[in-house]
């Protein structure tokens, strides 16, 4: 009976700690995009995207291939700068500060807005070095023990430490796919970002590794603002509090995740999420 009472109490706690889905929209705005356009040469890839990304919540971008969701994600940490012929218009502000301001240091920006890619891409170095690399070049650690602490705490936050603590000097590429992806998340966390962008972080992973990453995302959102691009609508429904649907370079609909998946307003959103012919 006592065990049962404990269980019930635990459930109640989980209920209390779970975020009310509508709270996501009431949170302060971390990132503010206004009328963002992207041209690749003569071809326009994004048409006037305006969206607010709430602080310490997970926002997901969904839409068919080529709809512009990844392009928009890459605008948020200026990854499109590196693509020749790419032009970005409009404005994106992080905490009210324009990230396309010419005086802004892009390297510093990318430390504040980290990114995790579709395919796990650890450096061909040891597990330790993978995580230590960022803090070292950004000068975040004053001593070796500082650096050790950052590496351990980042690996812990990424839920990987227990699995790799005895082999930190082994190559990161020797880990399983799911572990490699968590190593990349640890690497992103190590430089103390405020925002983490994830571009289909689970598409190369099996369901168990996916579930572990999803659980991790849920934990990370307490301290970080997370934006995730995903092809899996079920994943968007599971992990995010806010969802935005893109189609042919336009933002069709955005809102509380629960509303988008149970009662979307726009017919295009409806057809897409219900798997109907568009």
């Amino acid at each position: 009976m006592d065990m049962l009472a404990g269980k019930v109490k635990l459930t109640q706690q989980s209920v209390n700690s779970a975020m009310n889905p509508t709270d996501a929209l009431a949170r302060p705005i971390r990132l503010e995009a206004r009328d963002v356009t992207v041209h690749y040469g003569a071809k326009q890839a994004l048409f006037g995207i305006s969206i607010d990304i709430p602080d310490r919540a997970v926002t997901s971008f969904i839409g068919p291939s080529g709809c512009g969701k990844s392009t928009f994600l890459r605008c948020i940490n200026r990854m499109n700068d590196t693509i020749e012929g790419a032009r970005v218009g409009g404005s994106i502000k992080l905490d009210g500060e324009d990230i396309y301001d010419p005086s802004l240091d892009v390297v510093e920006l990318r430390a504040r807005i980290g990114m995790v890619f579709q395919k796990p891409n650890p450096f061909p170095k040891s597990i330790y070095e993978n995580v230590a690399y960022g803090p070292r070049i950004h000068g975040l650690a004053r001593s070796k023990s500082d650096l050790d602490e950052i590496v351990v705490s980042s690996l812990r936050k990424a839920g990987l430490f227990e699995e790799v603590k005895d082999r930190l000097s082994e190559p990161g590429t020797g880990l399983s796919g799911g572990q490699q992806q968590r190593l990349c998340i640890a690497r992103a966390i190590a430089v103390g970002p405020e925002v983490i962008l994830m571009d289909e972080p689970c598409s190369a992973l099996d369901p168990i590794a996916t579930a572990i990453i999803e659980e991790l995302i849920d934990e990370l959102r307490e301290n970080y603002t997370i934006v995730i691009v995903t092809h899996s609508m079920q994943q968007a429904a599971r992990v995010s509090q806010k969802t935005a649907f893109f189609h042919l370079g336009k933002l069709i609909e955005e809102g509380v995740t629960e509303d988008i998946f149970t009662n979307p307003v726009h017919k295009q959103t409806q057809d897409y999420i219900m798997g109907r012919i568009g």
Binding site: Q234, A237, T262, P264, I273, M274, G275
Partner: peptide, 8 residues
């Protein structure tokens, strides 16, 4: 995994 009006 039905969504929206299919789920309803």
């Amino acid at each position: 995994q039905p969504m929206a009006s299919d789920l309803r």
